[in-house]
């Protein structure tokens, strides 16, 4: 029924001809992606040093510019003079490699979940997830929709939930403060939790993403 030709070049090996006429075999799964499951990285054994690093991590939250659903509209005012999240150390980054917070801002359709997982897995340990709105908690008003997930914590580990439909930017700032408190207390280890329960998360993800046309490990 479905024509998947246009996604094929992503993950199937092919032979590319270089300008010199040389033939190069490209296997994206091996060349561009890692073939290992994520590892759990234990915190530094020195408590004092680790708490200092946690302070730095908490005071410098780089948020991935990734918007889903209606909540992305509530993130934009954060950077304006009225709310000015910069003074709390919150900054937006355009690439998942450099950011350590991903905000799932509202309902998440299956198609977007696929992208969100890829972005989340490309972020480096330690990383934090903030979930906005009732849609990420129990589905919200889309609880019986055929295409939106109900509970985000079955697909990626969530550090902070912010209730509301939609939460105001003030609530987001409060959520950032709560996240800072958690990180400073040494409880921001959800990335390790994801690595330890990797099989369970992957099974849940694969249950709803039917055309899994990407590698299992996206980093």
């Amino acid at each position: 029924m479905e024509n998947k030709d246009f996604i094929k070049p992503y993950y199937e090996s092919k032979i590319v001809e270089s300008p010199d006429g040389e033939e190069i075999k490209v296997n994206p799964l091996e060349d561009y992606f890692c073939g290992e499951a994520p590892k759990s990285h234990a915190p530094n054994s020195n408590k004092l040093w680790e708490s200092f690093l946690n302070w730095a991590r908490a005071e410098s939250l780089w948020v991935l510019g990734f918007g889903t659903g209606c909540g992305s509209m509530e993130i934009l005012p954060l950077m304006t003079p009225r709310f000015d999240a910069y003074r709390f150390g919150v900054q937006m980054r355009p690439t998942p490699r450099q950011s350590n917070v991903i905000i799932i801002s509202g309902y998440l359709s299956v198609k977007t979940l696929k992208r969100a997982i890829r972005s989340y897995e490309q972020m480096q340990n330690p990383k934090y997830v903030m979930a906005l709105g009732s849609c990420t908690i129990n589905g919200g008003m889309y609880y019986d929709s055929y295409n939106t997930i109900n509970r985000l914590d079955h697909y990626m580990p969530v550090d902070v939930y912010i209730t509301g439909c939609m939460p105001r930017p003030e609530a987001l700032l409060a959520g950032f403060e709560e996240m800072k408190r958690l990180i400073k207390a040494g409880k921001g280890e959800k990335a390790n939790e994801y690595a330890e329960n990797f099989e369970w998360y992957k099974a849940n993800q694969k249950k709803i993403i039917k055309d899994w046309n990407m590698p299992d490990y996206n980093w």
Binding site: S145, N150, I208
Partner: peptide, 16 residues
């Protein structure tokens, strides 16, 4: 039937 499909697929919150 969307509700039935959701209950089968998306882990709905118990007691919602």
């Amino acid at each position: 039937d969307t509700l039935k499909y959701v209950e089968k697929t998306y882990f709905p919150t118990p007691g919602r």
